[in-house]
Each structure stands twice: as structure tokens, then as C-alpha cells.
Design a protein around this nucleic acid. Structure first.
Lengths: 216, 216
DNA sequence: TAGATTGTTAATCGATTAACAATC
DNA sequence: TAGATTGTTAATCGATTAACAATC
């Protein structure tokens, strides 16, 4: 399927964005789109779009463009979104609840199968119909239910420890929301979502704008 | 202060990460660090670290290295984190609550001043001591309280509309968590935090790992 | 002073854009 | 067929890395 072995991360990070726009087009009933039109919509150059897609195969048709639905499906398959994933959430605080809620609201192939916390007040309650369990049992649960992804929604102080436990239990991926960089063995994929970093970038750009405004 | 007018976004995005590591060093009581040691810690090359910092000024000392606290303060100032920011949160669901909670827990210069929702069941309740108000009054509130940043925690369907309202009311920045790309006038800085995109990248990397494991 | 490490210029590498031949 | 638009190669641009003179 793949034409090239090593695809740069920059390309991979653009794929979900392409897919989102294709999904919108699909909903609007648009059948086909050219790289030029898609460029106009997404803000990426037509050249880059074609270049990116041709890392994986020739999905278009000369003189015509790309099938919206076809391309959507191709990108979904490249990302592995044609498969299902079972997740556990470690930490049933507001962030954990938000994640559970989010995956519930925007139905996708990622299914929260278990939620865990150390707080006795939370254990036994349910979030979107899923029972919150004792964190002590997380390894056992992951092993028995073949969980694919661990979601870390704990405070940063315990995040690495939780990650180690989840890796030991056999997850293939970690989705970390604690504001630290989680270290994992190379065979466990990890995404550190640094929400606060983006807020700091925002502050920088706000101040740039303000300085520019003051100069006038 | 700045030596150069145009700093690339790649550089800006590394600054919060540098700052996080410096903060950890500070807490451990480390006084100074060389670019070599910092490289080892952060995973960036020593060359890149020095190159990045020298976009803003010579913060180090030859033969010695960088003062941990001094550099932390410099980066904070570059990002504008020596200032305070007032935020309003639009959407008091789980995600909105998580943001309020997060800024409360990790005390920073970003202060949530108001929370707004359309749901009558939520209006009047409090989150971390902050009253949830009627979304109808958000523009008035932003204008009267000189709010700097609007945080969008609504479903994607209403996100752009909320953004337009906040821009009209006079915020300088938008921090968007809805899974759409918000469009704003150039003088309003925007960070679209695409949580789901990172999950899709994670799926890609998980499948890469699995394929590699199967080949063996 | 000698040693260490920065600041900065030059070289390399990779990613983006432009151009155009292939083809539907 | 003629027109349109892809797939792909070549050119450009920018970002990262290497090297080293400056200097604490």
C-alpha cells in the first residue's frame, strides 16, 4: 500500500485536517474536488496537497480531481481510523470526564471501556454510563480487555508512573494530557497534548499584535 | 529587545517546552545549565537551543552557560507570561469545567473571570467559586471587564458564532477547543487546539508500530 | 591564563513550491 | 479531441546542524 517507508511527521499531522474538511464536504453533498479548490478551502497549497497524498498513492484522476468520499476513506484508512480502538481513562476528574464525554458526543472508532481513579468518592459513580473503577485494578483490566490506548488525565506528578503501569499492562498507545513529556518504550506510541503550551503561544501572538497596534 | 522582526512559529512553539524544563530545574535547585546539558534533557540539539535563544538576545555567558532562573524569566517575558490575562469560558460543559479547573490547579497568569452557558440548568451554579452566567450577557461582560482571552468550549456547531461574538466584544485572543478551525480577524490571535487530530496521529503511529512488529 | 561554552556564520538537510509531462 | 487536472521531477526556500571564532 505505501510507496515510501518514511513519511515525515509534518505530513501525518496534516492528514487529520484534510480529513475534517473532506468530512464537511461530504456532509454538504460535494462529490469531487480538485487540489486547487481544496487548497482554497484548507489554506494549504495545491502542490502540497498533491505531494502529501502521493506519498500514499495516486488517489486522484487527471482532468477530474479527487472523489471526496473516496479520498476521505483513503485518509481514514491511512490513519487507521477504519479500525476500532478500546481506551481506558486514568483520572476521572473534569478532564477525564471531558474526554469521555467528547468521544461519546463525536462518535468515532475510539471507545472508552473503563475509567479509573484513586478517589473513593468517584469510584462507583458513572460517567456516560461507564462505571469509575479503582485505579488499583487498572493493569488487570487492561490485560483482560485487550485495551489499545491509555488516556492519562491525572495531575502531572503521577503521570509518568501511570504511563509506566499502562505500558506494562500492554497498551499500544498513550494519549497524555498531563503537562509533562511522558517517556515510553519505542513500541508504545505517545501523543503528549500540551494544552498549556498552546496557551503560551497564544499569549506570544497576542502581545505581538498589541505591539504592532501600538506602533501605529 | 528583539533582534529580528520575524521569528518562525517553530521557534515560538519550542519556547514553552524550554520553559517547562527550566521550571523543573529551578524547582530542583539547579542554578546554571549549558546548552549541551539542556540538549540532553530536552532532546533538542545544543545548536538549535542556542540558535533559538539568540533570536531574542544573548542570554548566556561564554565558558559558563545559562542561568536557569534568568533564562526562565527571559523566556517568560518573551512569551508575555510576565503579564496577567483575564479569560472568559464559553461553554460550561465538562471541557469548560476542565479548563477552569486546570487554570485553577496549575496557578498561572491566566485567570478565569467568567463562565457562560445557554443551559438554564447550569446558569447560576458555580465552578471553582466562579458563577456560571447566561450566554446572552457574554458581550456585555467582556466589554465591561476588559477580558483578554475567550475560551471556546462549545460544540463545533456554534463555535464560529461564539468566536465572532467574542471578537466583536473585543478580546485579543481566542483559545478554541471545538473541532473546527475558527476564523478571526488578523488582529485577534487564535489557537485551535485540535485534540482529536492528535488522537488520529496516535492511531497512525500505533498502526506503524504494529506493522513493524508483524514483519518480524 | 587555560578551559569551557557561548554567539554566530557557513554548510547541510529537508520540506515546500513551481513547473510540466502524463493522462483522464 | 481539447481542456483540465493529476502525478512527479526539479528548483527554491527555510530550518536545522556543524563549525569555529569570540569571550567569559
Amino acid at each position: 500500500m505505501s510507496k515510501q517507508t518514511k513519511i515525515s511527521n509534518a505530513v501525518i499531522q496534516r492528514l487529520p485536517r484534510y480529513r475534517r474538511y473532506l468530512n464537511e464536504l461530504k456532509k454538504k453533498g460535494v462529490d469531487k474536488i480538485s487540489s486547487g479548490e481544496f487548497s482554497h478551502l484548507t489554506g494549504y497549497t495545491a502542490s502540497q496537497i498533491r505531494q502529501d497524498l502521493n506519498n500514499f498513492g495516486g488517489f486522484g484522476q487527471q482532468g477530474y480531481g479527487y472523489s471526496v468520499e473516496g479520498l476521505y476513506n483513503e485518509i481514514s484508512a491511512i490513519l487507521g481510523l477504519d479500525k476500532g480502538y478500546k481506551m481506558v481513562v486514568a483520572g476521572a476528574g473534569h478532564l477525564g470526564q471531558a474526554i469521555v464525554n467528547h468521544t461519546y458526543y463525536y462518535k468515532t472508532g475510539f471507545i472508552v471501556t473503563g475509567i479509573f481513579d484513586v478517589n473513593p468518592d468517584l469510584i462507583g459513580t458513572t460517567i456516560n454510563g461507564i462505571r469509575v473503577m479503582d485505579y488499583e485494578n487498572i493493569v488487570e483490566f487492561v490485560e483482560e480487555n485487550n485495551i489499545d490506548i491509555g488516556v492519562i488525565c491525572t495531575p502531572k506528578e503521577t503521570a509518568q508512573e501511570v504511563a509506566d503501569k499502562l505500558c506494562f499492562a500492554g497498551v499500544d498507545g498513550l494519549w497524555n494530557f498531563a503537562p509533562v513529556d511522558i517517556e515510553t518504550p519505542s513500541y508504545v506510541a505517545t501523543e503528549n497534548v500540551h494544552i498549556t503550551d498552546s496557551l503560551h503561544s497564544l499569549a506570544y501572538h497576542m502581545n505581538k499584535n498589541r505591539e504592532a497596534a501600538n506602533k501605529k
